[in-house]
Nucleic acid binder design. Structure first.
Lengths: 103, 103
DNA sequence: CTGATCTACAACCACACGGTTGTACGTTAG
DNA sequence: CTAACGTACAACCGTGTGGTTGTAGATCAG
């Protein structure tokens, strides 16, 4: 998932298709690169579960998947939580040590 | 930043050093790879701002940076927010359309 | 049917990544 | 001082990434 988001073009695509479903060619028109390149980016995002495609006639509509985003956000928050837990443990040790003799 | 987290070993390192500062060699001992490889991973994390190093004698202590984690978590939440905003807009359109004739 | 459009995929290229080994240098321990 | 330790860095290798072009199959418009 992180790899999927580790590219500016792909993050931009994710943002766009979260706002609105778009065909691959509609997306490709917005970037200064070939259709095939955009197609590959979409494929990477699809493999990462960040995006899904549905056919509509000859077009392939791409839409964002907010669930995965939320999952990753939660993971990062849990990392932050680890740190906060550690910080609290340090505070506890300092609080417990109210005897000025000990360091 | 995403690239920094786009590797299982690096995510594990981040988690460890958030819990507790550790020297590069102490980290290297825990993984089935060379010291140099771990050193490179730490360098990537450092470039991404996810981690910082401070010298202590001949050792180099690595510690995690929770601020960046929080920043990225906020970014992902804003993506999710985009989707929720869009979903709400759709709801509004449907609610406004209380005439059963129109689709 | 014919042609334009949208998509898929293969082949290719330059380059970065994740890993290795080897060498060199500063710092600590005996 | 010497040896061991912790680190830094360069060179190398296989593989994947981000990009290109080209070809081919569906689908729609006229």
């Amino acid at each position: 998932m992180f790899h999927g988001l580790a590219d500016a073009t792909r993050r931009d695509i994710v943002e766009r298709v979260l706002r609105e479903e778009q065909s691959v060619s509609a997306l490709a028109r917005r970037y200064a690169m070939s259709f095939a390149a955009v197609q590959k980016h979409v494929a990477v995002l699809e493999r990462a579960g960040l995006v899904s495609k549905t056919r509509r006639g000859r077009e392939q509509l791409v839409r964002g998947n907010p669930d995965i985003l939320r999952t990753v956000a939660r993971l990062l928050e849990s990392y932050e939580q680890i740190w906060r837990h550690r910080a609290r443990a340090i505070d506890d040790i300092l609080a417990e040590d109210d005897d000025p003799e000990r360091t």
